[in-house]
Amino acid sequence: MTETKTPMLSIRNLHATVDGKEVLRGIDLDVGRGEVHAIMGPNGSGKSTLSYVLAGREGYEVTAGEILFEGRNLLEMDPEERAAAGIFLGFQYPVELPGVNNMTFLREAINAVRRARGEAEMDAVTFMKKVKAAAKQVGLKDTLLKRNVNVGFSGGEKKRNEILQMAMLEPKLAILDETDSGLDIDALRVIAEGVNALRSPERSFILITHYQRLLEYIVPDRVHVLAQGRILRSGDKALALELEEKGYGWLLGEEAVA
């Protein structure tokens, strides 16, 4: 743990509205370098909203609070600037891009990020090597690399494709929004291995999930319960097991009393 140092990500009193409705109602969260945080919570608690606010999606209005990423004010940055700074969002529902070749997309993304960082573009040979290795690791068939992004992919293939993009972009902070949903146990294991392979003291993760199941494969440092737009409780991995056993009702009850 890195309590004594400045956290990589620091969220303070974050309030956000979607279509005029307040969804996040005062979030405080610190994620240290190299840490894995799990955010759990019932449907409609604001988990996906939090991930979109972190990635900078339009239509999510921050009405109060601040987010600092490595000391920079994240809320002033465009989505592409956040990507270049090292933030990656693995989508709950990866978007299909008809007519856009998966390989072209990966290459454009990598080079856009490199250009934004003032680095040279990746040469074709290195790129090919990397992409093949990454595809193998996440169990994505080579043929899918040549197809259009996510078009005609199964649910599992889409999620693998997200992890492939993460592996290629090498973010500092990866937010994985329900990457485990809709996956069978084999696919879950492959994806968890992909994530674990990327764990490093320099890289942090926020795993958003409904189920404790994912956390058997990716062991978190911290677990948070997000409900009704606030973090109601934080703990270590034991909290996930407790939630699995008792559900969320008891926490919501506490909130109602409080």
């Binding site: 990635a55 900078g56 999606r57 339009e58 465009d78 989505p79 592409e80 956040r82 990507a83 270049a84 990656f88 969002l89 989508f91 990866p94 978007v95 891009l97 856009v100 072209t104 997309f105 454009e108 993304a109 990598i110 856009a112 990020v113 934004a116 993009q165 972009l169």
Partner: peptide, 16 residues
Amino acid sequence: FYLRSRGLPEVEARRL
């Protein structure tokens, strides 16, 4: 947004 979240500037995303 998907493309921008992967680092492509908006103009590039729209072009692609």
